[in-house]
């Protein structure tokens, strides 16, 4: 579903990604962890070209991400959830969710609203359809953001630290939505600090440090028997 070959990214003279190779299969849930500044968010943002790589190749759902037209087309199939939600504050929850399907997928307002209400039901926020984002709690906003991304019926979902900006009591409601999404077979790439969630929901865990994938494997194996020194060091600091 996602194929990354020798991906490199530099900001001025600082190389953040130093040659990443990664293949994500359909329905796979890949959790990316690592210290801050390791390049894990940059890696995720290269998967939909919000960050343009310095070199290397990214192919998503058979579309190589180069050129404006290809990138726009691929983005229709790639949902993204941000740390800071990035809901559109001047629109109601319902308008947030229906905008892109109507403008990009060109579906009718009725159909877009029907899908939006189904999604709001799924994330438990059907009663908030007419609310504006600033009126919602962080956890509610993030669930709306997930619904907004899902409304495009994407084939892949990217999550960039989706719970890092939340108050602790709201983390679970968001993780629960993500868990049910994983159970339904969505292909997901998740950057997170939620180790419990990574272990429970991830099919594969990626430990990234200094712009490289240091270690990867089934979460249980990596957590319980890390092979690399840097992985052990990281776990010793956080667990």
């Amino acid at each position: 579903m996602i194929d990354i070959k020798d991906l490199r990214k530099s900001f001025e003279d600082h190389e953040v990604l130093k040659g990443i190779n990664l293949h994500i299969n359909p329905k796979e849930v890949v959790v990316i962890i690592g210290p801050s500044g390791s390049g894990k968010s940059t890696l995720l943002r290269c998967m939909n070209m919000l960050e343009v790589p310095t070199s290397g190749k990214v192919v998503v759902d058979g579309i190589e991400l180069n050129g404006e037209a290809n990138i726009n087309k691929a983005r229709e199939e790639i949902g993204m959830v941000f740390q800071r939600f990035n809901l559109f504050p001047h629109m109601t929850v319902l308008e947030n969710i229906t905008l892109a399907p109507m403008k990009v997928r060109k579906i009718s307002k009725e159909e877009a609203e029907k899908t939006a209400m189904e999604l709001l039901n799924q994330v438990g926020l059907a009663d908030k359809a007419e609310a504006y984002p600033p009126q919602l709690s962080g956890g509610q906003q993030q669930r709306v953001a997930i619904a907004r991304a899902l409304a495009m019926k994407p084939k892949v979902m990217l999550f960039d630290e989706p719970t890092s900006a939340l108050d602790p009591e709201m983390v679970k409601e968001v993780l629960d939505v993500m868990k049910s999404l994983a159970n339904k077979g969505m292909t997901m790439a998740i950057v997170t600090h939620e180790m419990g969630f990574a272990r429970e929901v991830g099919d594969r865990l990626l430990f990234v440090d200094e712009g490289q994938i240091i270690e990867q494997g089934p979460p249980k194996d990596v957590f319980d028997n890390p092979k690399e020194e840097r992985t052990k060091l990281f776990f010793s600091k956080i667990l």
Binding site: G79, M80, L87, L99, A100, V104, A149, M152
Partner: peptide
């Protein structure tokens, strides 16, 4: 306007012009 607004619009597949216009 926060950069995240443009990123959110673009990540949904909207073009730069569409994101400018609606968001």
């Amino acid at each position: 306007i926060d950069d995240g607004q443009m990123e959110a619009g673009r990540s949904l597949g909207m073009t730069w012009v569409q994101t400018m216009r609606y968001i």
